[in-house]
Design a protein around this nucleic acid. Structure first.
Length: 740
DNA sequence: GCATCCCGCCAACGG
DNA sequence: CCGTTGGCGGGATGC
């Protein structure tokens, strides 16, 4: 990155000093497009620039001129400008290289953006400011997108994630690369080349090795593309190629990949039949494009490999070690999952920033989806100023509450006050963390809480272990995309683990690989009982027998480790502990969707100890009251539906905004660690308007997590590796499915 | 002459 | 039909 600084300097600017006669183009450029907001794509980004801007001016001329004319122009330029000026006006090929452009691009954004800030990228704007065709920006963005450094929000709009997702991305890519047997393919090709020296161009990769290769785009748990349509186009080409290319590095031992081998392997995937020259050549061209971007990211560097037949261009991976990344990522995951068990120091040690003594918090990956969903919604809203979606303020939602909730007014008020306090605390956290650089606090996507849609998140079940359980409580988040995404979730009484991979359907390809790591024998799966109320998401879970619950559960949502205040309000220990660092769990859900809650029978409701036993449903009023008192849900009065969970042991919990609970339905008792649990579905008032409204400062602040959903603020700034999760949802939905 | 790879045509897509 | 994306390869540039 340091080099970036150096290289990022725009050549034009560099030369400015030497050309006093002309105003610095950069100034002009800067001024130009900041008008930004226009989503419209200017035909030519730089045209509207000051005519005196050499670059812009030239660009304009060139764009309209034929090569011949271009040459003429150049000659004229040469006549008019001498030496330095000429250079300035006529950037050399190198100065227009994709690599340099990428440097400029990257310079615009921090490696680890503060999620609290607007990290959106307007392609037009960027293209204009960088004085390049938008086409070039696409080249860069596509590669960045393949690494999940950015994700598409809307047309012309991307969100910048920076490098925070890289560790996770690399880990996944490495796994996929292994699955694809890239390492073997590389070896095979190398051997081939050595053997039959020039003999057969057809050093085709044996089908046995290629069969596993596919062209699907590898998604990251939190960054699935959501634009169904895009799947169709054979697009993905550059993105996929980029990922494949990176995979080659990650799986090869020397981590050096020659272009030709890379090209052959990548071509082989698609069509190993015709390795015709042109195709190969084209592939090489694309690889150069990708390599330029990767080089700018300091992930690879150009090298040469010398073989019998001579020197071949190649690239060496200089990015983070995938294996170490994996470790890091894993540890991070564990940290987030089992805060209690890991020593903070240990956890932090693995992160670049770490502050011993302090607890590190990281958003569990399981939150990724949620965050993503939220972000997606927010994105939609943001990108669509005139969004037709009627977003009711959360207040409205409150207004729509049944009158019966009025009885809880007192409690509500109290809760509200409490939440306010909590809010303050929350807001402060990030800064503190940042400054201290010691904690990784990843809050769930509260940030976008205003903009979720019910569709994305149907349920927010809570699983609360028996009060006596020593471990933290768990919150199980149902997958926003019902039925579509299955995420393995494992948990023990103390730990909840989730492998945020997609299910076979969505992410079939990567899920298998990612999943294993989390599955520890000793861990028990937490199960969630699906209910008829579940939307499609639970459909697949429905008829499974009790034994399958865990399995089904595992594939349908997220388990988020949280620590809940004991329902019993045990003698202060928890309360006291929580007081200092209270956490609010807020779910992004504001719309109408069922909230499923699992409580241990002894806690809130007598539950059938054994599965299949039906327990009488408590009265809604009592139930809600209980929940509220237990801080599991917020009183119906506030616009913000929050669940306040006091950290146990003084550890902070993730925030989830709980939806208002109006109704609950007894689902069924299910076993949890041998302990009887009863699952209740708490349903929000249908008709409660979703509230994407972002115009409520109070609410905003209330929900907004310092860390931000999108990225844990802290994590992103201080602990890059600590936040494996991604928070934003990309607009595109590519089929990650498995291959072939 | 070959490695690089810029440039922009034009098709696919979505609205 | 139009704007956005981005595949693709001609051919220029640099060593």
């Amino acid at each position: 990155m340091e080099d970036d600084q150096k290289e990022n300097v725009c050549p034009v600017n560099i030369r400015i000093p030497r050309s006093p006669s002309k105003p610095p183009p950069s100034l002009v450029l800067t001024e130009l497009q900041c008008t930004a907001a226009n989503l419209k794509t200017p035909t030519k980004p730089c045209e509207n620039s000051d005519p005196w801007t050499p670059t812009a001016n030239l660009k304009m001329l060139i764009s309209a001129a034929s090569p011949e004319i271009r040459n003429r122009e150049r000659e004229i330029q040469e006549e008019q400008f001498s030496g330095d000026e000429l250079e300035k006006t006529m950037p050399s090929r190198k100065e227009k290289s994709l690599g340099l452009l990428c440097h400029k691009f990257l310079k615009r954004y921090p490696d680890y953006p503060n999620p609290a800030l607007n990290n959106s990228i307007c392609l037009d704007e960027v293209a204009g400011e960088l004085s390049v065709e938008r086409r070039r920006i696409y080249d860069i963005v596509n590669v960045l997108e393949s690494l999940h450094m950015v994700s598409r929000l809307a047309k012309n709009k991307y969100i910048w994630h920076g490098r925070k997702n890289l560790p996770q991305t690399f880990e996944v890519l490495r796994r996929v690369g292994e699955e694809n047997k890239y390492s073997e393919q590389i070896q095979h090709l190398k051997k081939r080349e050595q053997e039959e020296t020039e003999m057969a161009e057809d050093a085709a990769i044996p089908k046995s090795l290629v069969k596993q290769a596919e062209v699907s785009f590898v998604e990251l748990p939190g960054l699935e593309f959501r634009a169904a349509s895009v799947n169709s186009r054979k697009e993905k080409s550059l993105r996929v190629m980029s990922q494949r290319f990176v995979m080659l590095f990650l799986v090869s031992t020397p981590q050096i990949v020659s272009l030709d081998i890379a090209a052959k392997i990548l071509i082989g995937e698609d069509q190993l039949e015709d390795l015709d020259k042109s195709k190969f050549k084209t592939k090489i061209r694309r690889l150069y494009d990708i390599a330029n971007v990767l080089s700018s990211l300091n992930l690879i560097k150009k090298v040469h490999v010398t073989e019998e037949r001579g020197r071949k261009p190649a690239f060496q991976w200089i990015g983070p070690d995938s294996s170490s990344e994996q470790q890091e990522s894993t540890s991070t995951l564990h940290n987030s999952i089992a805060l209690d068990r890991c020593s903070p120091k240990e956890n932090c040690a693995k992160n670049l920033f770490s502050s011993r003594g302090k607890q590190s918090f990281t958003r569990h990956q399981s939150l990724i989806k949620l965050a993503k969903s939220i972000e997606n919604d927010r994105r939609k809203i943001n990108s669509a100023p005139s969004s037709p979606i009627k977003s009711g303020e959360s207040c409205d939602g409150a207004a729509s509450f049944p009158s019966k909730m009025a009885q809880l007014a007192a409690i509500c008020k109290e809760q509200l006050d409490q939440t306010k306090d909590l809010k303050k605390v929350k807001l402060k956290v990030p800064r503190g963390v940042l400054s201290s650089n010691s904690k990784v606090v990843i809050k769930p996507q509260t940030q976008q809480s205003q903009t979720f849609s019910p569709v994305l998140l149907h349920a927010l079940p809570f699983v609360q272990p028996h009060p006596n359980s020593p471990g933290p409580y768990a919150v199980y988040m149902q997958s926003p995309h019902a039925g579509v995404q299955a995420h393995p979730v494992l948990c023990t009484s103390k730990t909840l683990l989730e492998a945020p991979q997609g299910d076979q359907k969505d992410n079939g390809k990567i899920s298998p690989a990612d999943r294993p790591a989390e599955n520890e024998p000793g861990q028990e799966k937490c199960s969630r009982k699906s209910s008829e109320h579940d939307n499609g998401s639970s459909k697949r879970l429905k008829s499974s027998p009790p034994e399958d619950l865990s399995e089904r559960l595992v594939h349908s949502g997220y388990l988020i480790p949280v620590q809940l205040t004991p329902l019993n309000n045990e003698p202060g220990k928890d309360q006291a502990a929580s007081t200092p660092d209270p956490k609010i769990l807020t779910s992004p859900i504001t719309g109408v969707f069922p909230l499923k809650v699992m409580f241990s029978p002894c806690v809130s409701q007598p539950a059938g100890p054994t599965p299949g036993t039906t327990c009488p449903s408590p009265s809604p009023g009592i139930f809600n009251f209980t929940l509220q008192n237990k801080d599991l849900i917020s009183p119906p009065c506030g616009s913000a539906h929050s669940v306040t969970i006091s950290p146990r042991n003084g550890k902070p919990c993730d925030d989830l905004q709980a939806s208002k609970v109006l109704n609950f339905k007894h689902m069924s008792p299910i076993p949890y660690h041998g302990q009887p649990f009863t699952l209740y579905a708490l349903q929000q008032q249908p008709g409660v308007p979703l509230t994407p409204k972002g115009s409520q400062p109070l609410k905003d602040s209330f929900f907004r997590t310092p860390g931000g959903l999108t990225s844990s603020p802290i994590g992103s700034t201080t602990c890059p590796s600590a936040s494996p999760g991604t928070s934003l949802i990309s607009q595109r939905k590519l089929d990650v499915g498995a291959d072939e």
